[in-house]
Measured scan of single mutants.
Amino acid sequence: EINATPKGWSCHWDRDHRRYFYVNEQSGESQWEFPDGEEEEEES
């Protein structure tokens, strides 16, 4: 699962919740759901 993350994302293990979470390396935002690989940036 770690190697399957889309480009620009990293996968980390949360010991407290015993599950993986994903970090967007560009924005620093994290989420529980597996990233779909589409950038959802809304910068103007």
Rank of each mutant, 00 (worst) to 15 (best):
Q26N: 08
H17W: 03
E43V: 14
E42F: 05
D16N: 06
G28M: 02
V23L: 12
N24I: 00
R19G: 03
V23R: 11
W32K: 07
W32G: 06
E25W: 01
A4Q: 09
G28K: 08
N24T: 02
F21L: 11
E38R: 12
F34C: 12
S10V: 08
T5Q: 05
E43G: 13
D16F: 05
H12W: 02
H17Y: 09
G8E: 04
R15Y: 06
E25N: 05
N3Q: 14
S27M: 02
E33N: 13
E40W: 10
F34E: 10
Q26E: 06
S30E: 11
S44G: 15
H17L: 13
E40G: 13
H12P: 00
R15G: 12
W13S: 01
E25V: 08
E25L: 09
D14V: 01
T5S: 01
N3E: 15
E40F: 09
G8L: 01
E41V: 14
W32N: 01
Y22P: 00
D16M: 08
W9A: 02
Q26T: 10
G37N: 02
W9M: 02
H17T: 12
A4L: 13
D36R: 12
H12L: 06
F21V: 15
G28S: 03
S44F: 02
V23K: 14
P35V: 02
E41L: 10
W13Q: 03
K7G: 02
N24R: 05
R18V: 04
E39T: 15
E39W: 08
D36Y: 03
E43P: 14
E1N: 06
H17V: 08
D14L: 00
D14A: 03
R15P: 09
T5M: 11
K7L: 06
Y20M: 08
S10E: 05
D14R: 00
E42D: 14
H12Q: 04
S27C: 01
Y22G: 03
E29T: 07
H12M: 03
T5V: 14
E39V: 13
E33C: 05
E29K: 13
K7H: 15
W32E: 07
D36T: 09
F34H: 12
E42V: 12
Q31D: 00
N3M: 15
R15V: 10
E43L: 10
R19Q: 10
P35N: 01
H17N: 06
I2D: 12
Q26C: 15
T5F: 06
D36G: 14
F21G: 05
F21S: 08
E38T: 12
E40P: 12
F21K: 11
F34G: 05
W32C: 06
Q31L: 05
F21D: 06
S27K: 03
E38C: 11
E43D: 12
Y20D: 02
Y20S: 05
E33Q: 12
K7S: 07
E33A: 11
H12G: 05
E25K: 15
Y20V: 08
E40I: 14
Y20E: 03
S30A: 13
E39F: 09
I2P: 10
H17K: 15
Q26K: 15
F34A: 11
E25D: 15
I2W: 06
W13D: 01
A4E: 14
E29A: 11
S10F: 04
E42I: 04
W32I: 13
R18H: 10
H12N: 06
S10Y: 03
T5G: 05
V23G: 02
A4V: 09
E41Q: 14
D14H: 06
S30I: 14
R18C: 08
R19T: 02
D36W: 07
H12S: 04
E33K: 07
N3K: 15
E38Q: 14
N3R: 09
Q26P: 00
P6S: 04
R15C: 08
W9S: 05
S30R: 15
E33V: 04
E42M: 14
S30V: 15
E40N: 11
R19C: 08
S30P: 08
R15L: 09
S44A: 08
E43Q: 04
